[in-house]
Computed example of a mutant assay.
Amino acid sequence: MEAVIDKGALLNELDSYYTVSPEAIAFYREKGYIKLKDVLSPAVLDYYGDIITDLVFKLNTLIKPMEERTTYERAFLQIMNLWREDDQAKEFVFSKRLAKIAADLMGVEGVRIYHDQALYKEPSGGITPWHADQFYWPLASPNTVTVWIPLQATPMEMGPLAFAERSQHVEIGRDMEISDASEKILADELQQQNFVMHDTPFDLGEVSFHAGWTFHRAGPNISDRPRGVMTMIYMDKDQVIMQPRNKFQVADHAKWLDNAPVGSHPQDELNPVLFSY
């Protein structure tokens, strides 16, 4: 007999608050990331994971064989802004529980969504090279954070996310797109500067938050199952749009910010406030 899903309980969980300890907040601000256990229940991850997975395979357009793909294409299937594609995906993306954690970690009054993205690393999928996300974003303040939510337990062989501790404060590599070059140059530079790399598995229900300028990477998926991950990027609700500095920021300004004027705040239609005190 099929289990009856209590949708009300799932929605209640997504909007109930998770208390972030002062120690966790201090850790995040010092090291540029935090991993938090038992943030989401297996029931929520199972229900919404199926919805997200279906959308990824419905919307994916990358069908080249693995050997013909670039390093970036081998890293994952990437589907963006699922909240605008599906009402149930929107329930997950707009979770007040997750948005409040983001606000508390950054110490801001509230957060907007920048955009969401599903990242599916297929079996035999390659590495995700070292990079910092904010290279791609025309946002003036460093008050940005990404939540990384594995939709299954993620052992080392599936390529969990790894972080260079305290790297959010350094200027190296801030002009590098994600590539073979960024992997090599940043790996060498981070090693020379003695950055500690935190690379550990994720339990089911464990999620991470990392700052926009924190360098991170992921290993290959050498398991026989896809590594499903959902991410949401949050920004301070009072974030300011800056003049784009590279072609990627020009594209992001158009796609995720609807070309809102430089110097203004993001608009509510594409970038609604998800949590505010």
Score class of each variant (00 low, 15 high):
S124H: 06
Q117P: 00
H115C: 11
W148S: 04
P150G: 10
E177I: 02
V170Q: 04
E157Q: 05
S182N: 07
A153L: 01
W148T: 02
G110M: 14
Y120Q: 08
A103Q: 06
D175I: 15
H115A: 09
Y136W: 10
E177R: 01
S167N: 07
M156E: 13
E122L: 15
F135E: 07
D116I: 00
N143P: 14
Y136R: 13
H131K: 09
S124E: 01
E109D: 07
D175H: 15
D175E: 13
H131G: 13
A103C: 04
E183W: 09
M176Q: 13
S182Q: 10
V111K: 03
A103T: 02
T144H: 01
G110A: 11
A162H: 05
G125W: 06
T146N: 13
G107V: 00
F163G: 08
T128G: 07
A162C: 08
I113A: 05
T154R: 10
P155S: 13
P160G: 02
T146M: 11
V108N: 02
Q117H: 02
W130C: 04
D116E: 05
A162S: 10
L119F: 06
D116L: 00
P160T: 03
T128M: 11
G173M: 05
P138F: 02
T154Y: 14
P155D: 15
Y120G: 10
E171Q: 08
A118K: 05
V170S: 04
W130P: 03
A132N: 08
R174P: 11
M106K: 02
P142L: 14
A118P: 00
A162D: 06
T154W: 14
R174S: 09
P150C: 12
E109A: 15
A153I: 01
Y136L: 08
V147P: 08
I113Y: 07
Q152P: 00
L161G: 12
E183F: 04
I127H: 06
D104F: 03
E177T: 05
D104M: 06
F135Y: 14
G125N: 08
W148V: 02
V111Q: 03
L119E: 02
Q134V: 09
S124W: 00
M156W: 05
P160L: 07
